[in-house]
Amino acid sequence: MLEIKNVSKTYPGGTQALNDVSFSIPDGQFLAVIGLSGSGKSTLLRCINRLIEPTAGEIIWNGVNMVPLPENEMRLYRRKIGMVFQNFNLVARSSVLTNVLSGRLGYINPAWSLINRFSKEDYRDAMLQLERVGIADKANQRADELSGGQQQRVAIARAMMQNPEIMLADEPVASLDPVLAHSIMQYLEKINQELGVTVICSLHFLDLVHRYADRVVALNEGKVVFDGLPAEIDDAKFKDIYGRDAERVG
């Protein structure tokens, strides 16, 4: 159970990205976060694993409030929270295998990772994850030689190396074409359904939301404007979320 209580975030420039956001996510849910660009979706996801520090509020995971934790303890929680990004965020010049292995960094002794040493189990695990996303044959290529869809699969494999209980996905398919988008979403669905990983995914397209999400939270200017089932989004709700002038497409 992940509870988000009264979380606000104001950036140093004065922009308020999140304004008193509260909701809770039961384990094993596939939650979609929707909203316009700049509505605070990315900030919300990054507040959960504290890549961005919330200015106020609590984020309670299994009874522990993670907001006041010092960096070295936060690390231990962070490794149980996988994350994939819109721009994949692979290390371009490193090999696919190294990128996947770097998902283990939170678990191993930092001194060993300095000399680029991972255990045999980690190597086996990494190859297994790559096989699961179907690109084991690319393990020794440089990450930037792969296509966008392949890169996102590597990113999922990297996140899965953390053995996560929560998977944060920040617009994972926004840079991909519709066919690839579905294949990536299906991986996330598989992780959610087969391994019971809670997935929190921000999305642009409503059809993806209808197809994959158990529940939707919509943000507008940092506030929760909708929290419910995907099927409940009718035209009135749609206009609340995306503004008066918005037209439904697709």
Binding site: L51, R78, L105, G106
Partner: peptide, 19 residues
């Protein structure tokens, strides 16, 4: 981006620099 991703995996600062 990559720095953020490595940080999200629970790596400490030294590991973030190396990877």
């Amino acid at each position: 981006g990559p720095l953020e991703a490595i940080q999200a995996s629970g790596a400490n600062l030294l590991q973030q620099i190396v990877y």
